[in-house]
């Protein structure tokens, strides 16, 4: 990854984070922590990795994205708005009555959302459906999904993992946002699902462990996924929940709480400073 690309993606990721803070602050609700942790991978996916066209969101041959951890919708919405699927003004009415942006992704109404998600564990199965349908049709689109490390406690995730591995869905890439925090505490205290990599390997997946907040590692992992034939790929991204807003980083209580006005101002000040330093 050259420096200018890296900088572009870092700027995009920072803007996604600003969108997350804006959206959850305006909504007075939502899930900032797990949204901030996936801003980097979304920046990579939406700027080069995925074959998509915001002007033609329903194109049959497009790559698909399923946010299996649907509660990180604020990050997805911010990325979609930045790509032009809808106006960034929509982020200000996230979760408002009658607004476009529902609390969790809604494919019926929101351009760019390929699957309605929010009930954990179901998104990866839907992604399997998209992937196998593409394979059966001889299409070469790829399917991307992001799961939470708490989410994979759901049994359905492993039913889907078994399906994708057995069906050799090498057009499917799952990213596990391994931030080790869930609502009730540290994942490793609540109900450890470690080792994540060995579990996916056992289901015949190509597994790559990376720093999920490092854009170069993210790029390398997705490139390796493209090279891998006959197996789906699982990228386990070690991330920091709340990444980019120092007082939210690795703090469990920021899972599902919106910032108040003071916190909003502090977070935006920090993110704006990050943006300014990137934009030089």
């Amino acid at each position: 990854m050259d420096n200018s690309t890296k900088k572009e993606l870092e700027i995009f990721a920072t803007k996604v984070r600003m969108g997350v803070i804006e959206g959850t602050y305006c909504a007075k609700a939502g899930h900032p922590g797990g949204s901030l942790s996936i801003a980097d991978v979304l920046a990579y996916l939406y700027n080069g990795e995925m074959n998509i066209d915001p002007k033609n969101p329903d194109c049959a041959d497009r790559d698909r994205f399923v946010l299996s951890k649907g509660h990180a919708a604020p990050a997805l919405y911010a990325a979609l708005a930045l790509k032009g699927y809808f106006s960034t003004d929509e982020l200000k009415t996230l979760r408002h009555k009658g607004a476009l942006l529902q609390g969790h992704p809604d494919m019926k109404h929101i351009p760019g959302v390929d699957m309605s998600t929010g009930s954990l564990g179901q998104g990866i199965s839907a992604a399997c459906g998209m992937a196998i349908s593409g394979k059966m049709a001889g299409k070469d689109y790829r399917v991307y999904t992001i799961l939470g490390d708490g989410e994979i406690q759901e049994g359905q995730v492993w039913e889907a993992a078994m399906f994708a591995g057995f069906k050799k869905l090498d057009n499917l890439v799952a990213f596990v946002d391994f931030n080790n925090l869930q609502i009730d505490g540290r994942m490793t205290d609540v109900m450890s699902d470690l080792p994540i990599d060995e579990k996916f390997k056992a289901f015949n997946w190509n597994v790559i462990n990376i720093n999920g907040n490092d854009l170069e590692e993210i790029e390398n992992a997705y490139k390796m996924a493209r090279e891998c034939k006959g197996k789906p790929t699982c990228i386990i991204g070690k991330t920091v929940k709340g990444k980019g807003v120092s007082f939210m980083e690795d703090v469990c209580s920021w899972h599902g709480v919106a910032p108040n006005e003071e916190q909003y101002n502090d977070a935006m000040k920090e993110l704006k400073a990050t943006l300014e330093s990137l934009e030089g």
Binding site: A60, D114, M115, S125, A126, A127, G129, S133, G134, F163
Partner: peptide, 9 residues
């Protein structure tokens, strides 16, 4: 859920 994904295509 897989059926849903298939139908979406």
């Amino acid at each position: 859920s897989i059926a849903a994904g298939i139908a979406s295509t």
